[in-house]
C-alpha cells in the first residue's frame, strides 16, 4: 500500500496533533478506501497518545512503534 511519511520531529504540542488532523482530513478518502496509509514520525511523546486517539475517533487504525530516538505512528484503514 502507498504510504505518505510526515516527518514532525522537533515539533511539539499542539502542532503535532494539528498537523496530523490536517493530513488525516486531507487524505480521508484514500485512507478509507485502503489506498493510502499515513506515517507520522515524531519525537513528541504526547503525540503517541493524542494522534492514535484522534485517529480512532475518525474510524482509522493507529499503530505506534518506537523508532530510533522517536516514534512512528502508522494510520490506515480499520481492518477489524
Amino acid at each position: 500500500m502507498p504510504s505518505k511519511e510526515i516527518d514532525m520531529r522537533g515539533q511539539i504540542c499542539p502542532s503535532t496533533l494539528l498537523t496530523a488532523l490536517r493530513e488525516m482530513n486531507a487524505n480521508k478518502d484514500l485512507i478509507r478506501s485502503g489506498d493510502l496509509e499515513l506515517l507520522f514520525v515524531t519525537d513528541n511523546r504526547d503525540a503517541t497518545v493524542t494522534i492514535p486517539e484522534s485517529a480512532a475517533n475518525m474510524g482509522y487504525e493507529a499503530k505506534v512503534e518506537k523508532s530510533g530516538d522517536g516514534y512512528q505512528i502508522r494510520i490506515c484503514k480499520h481492518t477489524s
Binding site: 516527518d7 520531529r9 522537533g10 515539533q11 502542532s15 519525537d43 511523546r45 530516538d69 522517536g70
Partner: peptide, 14 residues
C-alpha cells in the same frame, strides 16, 4: 530512554 536528540528542522512559523 534514548530519546534525547535535538531536531532543528522545524517550520519557521513554529
Amino acid at each position: 530512554i534514548r530519546e534525547f536528540r535535538p531536531h532543528w528542522n522545524v517550520p519557521a512559523s513554529q
